[in-house]
Amino acid sequence: MSQTIAIAQIASSSNGRSSGRPWKSAKAPTARSHIQPGAKTKSWQDRMMKEQKEKAVKKLQTELKEEKQAEKERRKQITLERRKAAEERKRAEELKIQLGARKAARLRKKAGRSKKINQ
Rank of each mutant, 00 (worst) to 15 (best):
K53L: 11
K103I: 14
R83L: 06
K42A: 09
A11R: 09
G38T: 05
S13T: 12
G112Y: 07
K40I: 15
M49R: 06
E73K: 00
L80M: 07
K27E: 07
R102Q: 00
I97M: 09
L80E: 11
S14M: 08
T62V: 12
K110P: 03
T4E: 10
W44M: 11
E87F: 06
K24I: 04
K103E: 05
Q9L: 07
A111T: 09
K58P: 00
I10S: 03
R74M: 06
A28V: 14
I97C: 04
G20D: 00
T4F: 13
A39Q: 15
V57P: 02
S19F: 01
H34I: 12
A39K: 15
I35Y: 02
T30H: 03
G112I: 02
P37Q: 13
K115R: 11
M49Y: 05
K24M: 01
Q119G: 15
E54V: 00
P22G: 05
K55L: 14
R21E: 03
S18E: 14
I78L: 13
S18H: 11
A26N: 05
K27P: 10
K68G: 00
Q9R: 11
N118E: 01
W44T: 13
R108E: 12
L60I: 06
W44H: 10
G112H: 09
A70T: 13
I35H: 03
K110N: 12
S2I: 12
S18R: 15
K58F: 06
S18M: 11
K110W: 10
K24S: 02
A86G: 00
K42D: 07
S12E: 07
Q36R: 15
E81N: 10
R108S: 12
D46C: 07
S114T: 10
R74W: 05
K40T: 15
K40L: 15
G20Y: 01
L80F: 10
R21G: 01
S13K: 04
E94S: 14
E87C: 02
M1H: 12
P22Y: 00
K76G: 05
G100F: 03
R75W: 08
K68V: 08
I5R: 13
K24H: 05
K40G: 15
T62Y: 10
R108P: 00
A101G: 03
T79E: 10
I117D: 03
E63L: 08
K109P: 01
S43Q: 06
